[in-house]
């Protein structure tokens, strides 16, 4: 509960700060905090992935982009009433929705009585892997993991194409194109 409150405080910091460098570092803090929360919620695999990917790779990529661009955010020109209104309405609607959710951490909710127990009881006989998350990820739902790898591959190709075009003397090209007409 303390961790979750801390998480909310860090999120407010991310909203308020205008120095993008600080925002990115707070983002890394946020990732580590939520990884700790995942660990407390009995999800060690997810916690490890979040700490490595969310706090590690994402932060490094963000810092690289900040190095290529600038690190300060300009002030918004018009007052921010409309976004605040949209966010408040969305939040209120979602909180109204949670009142019908089953209480936290009980074993007889629909989440725990559907397909989860099957995996838990059949993992050892079917695959011989004691870590059920690993066996579901790599064996029962192996095709999904293949799809995930395809997504990463596509993303890598996309980034390569975007940055490859950037290496050409595009700045002069665009400038001359803008000056031409």
């Amino acid at each position: 509960m303390v961790l979750l409150t801390l998480l909310a405080v860090v999120a407010i910091g991310i909203v308020r700060l205008r120095n993008l460098f600080a925002v990115v570092i707070l983002g890394a803090v946020y990732s580590f905090l939520i990884a700790t929360v995942f660990l407390v919620l009995d999800a060690p695999d997810v916690a490890m992935t979040e700490a490595a990917v969310g706090a590690g790779i994402a932060t490094v990529m963000m810092l690289a982009v900040l190095h290529l661009t600038k690190t300060d955010e300009s002030r918004p020109r018009q007052p921010q009433i409309f976004p605040l209104f949209v966010s408040a309405v969305t939040g209120a609607a979602l909180i109204y929705g949670t009142l019908d959710l089953p209480p936290f951490g009980e074993a007889d909710t629909p989440v725990h009585t559907h397909v989860g127990p099957y995996y838990l009881s059949q993992s050892i006989p079917d695959t011989g892997v004691p870590n059920v998350v690993a066996s579901v990820l790599a064996s029962y739902r192996g095709w999904d993991t293949l799809g995930e790898v395809v997504v990463i591959f596509t993303a890598a190709i996309g980034v390569l194409l975007l940055l490859r075009r950037a290496q050409r003397p595009t700045r002069q090209a665009t400038r001359s194109r803008r000056d031409a007409p």
């Binding site: 999800a43 695999d45 963000m62 989440v111």
Partner: peptide, 25 residues
Amino acid sequence: ANPLPHVLILTAIVVGVATLAVGLG
């Protein structure tokens, strides 16, 4: 704990960082 949400979220984290990379590009 139920393993199924963990599996879904593992996939989602990795896909999320892939889309983030494209966005930053």
